[in-house]
Write a protein that binds this DNA or RNA. Structure first.
Lengths: 219, 219
DNA sequence: AAATTATTTTAGTCTTGCCTAAATTCTTTT
DNA sequence: AAAAGAATTTAGGCAAGACTAAAATAATTT
């Protein structure tokens, strides 16, 4: 059995690896809310257990074994998120923090029951793909809303779950995964991006727009 | 926030207090699967926090504050047991071990949602009463099956959840809380108790019969 | 290239919750 | 009432996982 701490590290390493490529001690320190020194010592332990590889001063990489575990945890997390929303009506801005705790206590049996209950879903409430049980995951090609040219019809693929406030705002205007919308304009001087959705226009800050992933919709 | 360990201690103290009256270090040591010395040191800590009172060599007692917490944990445990059975079809002999983990990670919000989903239930799948949110609990008057005189019609009130094997056996013969059955005879020399249930007769070992609580049914 | 700054690692501590072995205290038996 | 036995507590340690402060290394600026 792995400790909750180890599971959190592996999950976070996977996430940083996907979003930033390189996984530095300081990045982990920041994401995990733990001192850099603590990261160094845990990194040492994970290396000894062959869950990651590490070269001093050069960041870490998951081994296949480590990646498998990371994806199991992420699978738990995303299944739980969707389950809480579907079965218990938990609002989508709250599912993340609940799932942070549940992901560590989900048995295989319960995982299967939840998976079945949900009809073997492929994405969570934020549009993130749910890893399959065998440790594979289908990643959809998409770009950040902030990088899209104006006058493009796009479909929302995924929204970051890290900021509940953003999620509440987006939910409020009806912006969910699979929603189609048009990018109207990008205001100058780092101003907001204006989108049109169900006939109305809304501003989205550039920063927020980094966390909204979209794909071009065929017209 | 209380550690999982502290929550387990308080819950166990409550349970031993109810079933045995006195709560000795060794009883806790046994139930918690921990050395007596470890119990002593945790007891010291819980006393300092005013969650229990303790007189050297004389056992411990919950304070009102400690009892409140114990009942919250037990409420979580029992709600989760019932939820897993009702919502996800987990067999009644497995819900206990799952709930042992979930009870520690259930938020107030989720507790309420589950409670509502279940229609504000008053007992768990084993017939144990679910404590109310205010820390009160209704205890039903009942006696152990092993103490019932033959030729009595009884109704099952509660079955201990500590032994999955027993639960599977009982489930197999259709013996659940609220089931009515007749005690036919008690075989001599500590032999089994014979009960009749839906027209068939079944033997129940004396030891098992200690863990089946019943009340006299009005004929 | 040297100096400054930023990142990472080492060294040494702390807390929690467990352990074993030994000492104490209570209980029961003789 | 003394001895034997059982239960409890004390003493001293260990592992996990965090911390701070200081040292080492890398990266950037001058």
């Amino acid at each position: 059995m792995l400790s909750q701490s180890i599971e959190d590290y592996l999950k976070t390493i996977y996430e940083v690896e996907s979003s930033e490529g390189k996984v530095s001690t300081s990045a982990l320190s920041e994401k995990l809310g733990v001192s850099p020194a603590s990261v160094t010592s845990m990194v040492k332990k994970l290396s000894e257990r062959k869950l990651i590889t590490h070269k001093r001063y050069q960041g870490v990489k998951l081994t296949p074994a480590g990646r498998k575990i990371a994806l199991e945890i992420i699978r738990h997390h995303r299944l739980v998120e969707l389950y809480l929303k579907e079965a218990l009506g938990v609002p989508w801005d709250q599912v993340h923090q609940e799932a942070e705790k549940w992901e560590h206590v989900l048995s295989e049996d319960l995982e299967d029951r939840i998976d079945k209950f949900l009809g073997y879903p492929v994405t969570d409430p934020h549009g993130s793909p749910i890893p399959r049980r065998d440790g594979t995951m289908i990643v959809r090609q998409c770009s950040a809303l902030v990088d899209v040219e104006p006058e493009t019809l796009v479909k929302v693929v995924e929204v970051s779950d890290h900021d509940p406030e953003l999620l509440r705002y987006l939910g409020g205007i009806g912006l969910y995964p699979e929603t189609e919308m048009t990018v109207i304009s990008k205001q100058p001087f780092k101003g907001p991006i204006i989108i049109e959705l169900t006939g109305k226009e809304y501003p989205i800050g550039r920063n927020a727009a980094k966390y909204i992933m979209v794909e071009e919709a065929k017209n």
